Simulated assay, not measured.
Amino acid sequence: MTNRPVLVPAVLGVLAAVLTGCVAVGPQEGVLTLTGSDAVPLPACDHAAPVPVAALASDDLPACEPVGQVLVFPDGGQLQLPEESIGAGSQAGSSDVRYSYSGVGRFGVVAAQAGPGCVDVREWGTPEALRRVHDAFGSRWMCD
């Protein structure tokens, strides 16, 4: 019983350090942290048509996640999304153009196109999804 007063503050201190470490990810730390309902994957979209990336740019949160579908970029480039809940990925197209995407939980999918040398960058997604990706990975997330 004499150890109890010392043990409780020690356990609380460790717990506080662990919890703080989990949520205190600073800008551009390379970790996209989603918690609670933000991390719950959206239901898969039931249509199998290609998705123009311009459709990702909306102020409204998406109702579904385009798993297994093809993202189509304005220059005609395409990027196949995986069949399971979306994470992140990229691929180089012709002329060293890079196409990238990142799933951001309930905030939807962010897509980007960058020219050679990471110039002429264009991005599509909800404002909150873009903010979270930039906070986690920086504005050059599609190139780094």
Score class of each variant (00 low, 15 high):
M1I: 09
N3F: 10
V6I: 13
L7Q: 12
P9I: 11
G13C: 07
V14H: 02
A16W: 07
A17E: 03
L19S: 13
L19D: 14
L19F: 15
T20P: 00
C22F: 11
V23H: 10
V23S: 10
G26M: 09
G26F: 09
G26K: 13
Q28E: 15
L32A: 03
L32E: 01
L34K: 00
T35K: 08
T35H: 08
G36H: 02
G36C: 06
S37M: 08
S37C: 01
S37D: 15
V40C: 04
V40K: 13
L42M: 07
P43N: 07
C45K: 06
D46C: 08
H47E: 12
A48Q: 14
A49E: 15
A49P: 03
P50Q: 06
A55C: 04
A57L: 07
D59K: 12
D59W: 05
D60W: 06
A63P: 02
A63W: 09
C64D: 08
E65W: 05
P66W: 05
V70F: 06
V70T: 15
L71I: 11
V72H: 02
V72N: 03
P74V: 08
P74N: 07
G76E: 07
G76Q: 06
Q78P: 02
Q78W: 06
Q78S: 12
G87F: 10
G87D: 14
S90R: 12
Q91D: 13
Q91F: 09
A92C: 08
G93L: 06
D96W: 11
V97G: 02
Y101F: 12
Y101R: 03
Y101P: 02
Y101K: 02
V104A: 03
G105C: 01
G105Q: 00
R106G: 05
R106H: 03
V110Y: 02
V110K: 01
P116R: 08
C118R: 10
C118M: 11
C118F: 10
C118Q: 13
C118V: 15
V119E: 14
V119P: 00
V121Q: 07
R122E: 11
E123D: 06
W124P: 01
W124Y: 07
G125S: 05
E128Q: 09
R131S: 09
R132K: 09
R132D: 03
V133R: 02
A136P: 03
F137Y: 15
F137R: 04
G138R: 04
S139D: 13
S139F: 11
S139T: 13
R140N: 13
R140D: 15
R140K: 12
M142I: 06
C143L: 08
D144Y: 10
